[in-house]
Amino acid sequence: MSWIIGISALALMALIAGLILGFAAIRFRVESDPIVEQIDSILPQTQCGQCGYPGCRPYAEAIANGDELNKCPPGGQATIDKLADLLGREAKPLDAAHGEEDIKKVAIIREDECIGCTKCIQACPVDAILGATKQMHTVIADECTGCDLCVEPCPVDCIDMVPVEPKPERWKWQLEQIPIVEMNHLAELGQTQANGSNEAETTKQQQVNG
């Protein structure tokens, strides 16, 4: 008799567990593929298409489907490492076929040369170019991702990619990169003794250490 009780007890438990799982499958259903979202949030969102896909999201989907991680030059090695970490794959060096890691740039239109053809506006993946037909166009620098896509379509080549200018509030404390100005104008003012501070360029900027 005991084996009947055992089997029926197990069957009952399986039924309950099945019901719970079935309920959970409906109640906690995930709408979209979360891994694509996660990959997309790591990608730099320049939408430059250097990976060969029309934007970051399509590349995120491709990665989720098994494409290589190392096709994103704007993200660079840091992005590759993060993706490798997320997906548990090997972090390869950046694939040079898709371009090289570069400093951050922003597009600037030489406005007096712009003929107002709107070709760059159509090319911009993030709608960061403002203008109308036969009207001068301009780039909203804050929204520009530096993707380069507007440069090629321009028929009069009036778009330049210029490095983003460093701002004091976003400066990263690279003291060794500060150019040291000679203080020789003091000599003009008669304030220095012989060759007072003309050798200031040899001074090293260092943390003041009490």
Partner: peptide, 9 residues
């Protein structure tokens, strides 16, 4: 900024 770019895209 990337988030904004994504939204705009």
């Amino acid at each position: 900024k990337a988030e904004i770019a994504r939204q705009r895209f």
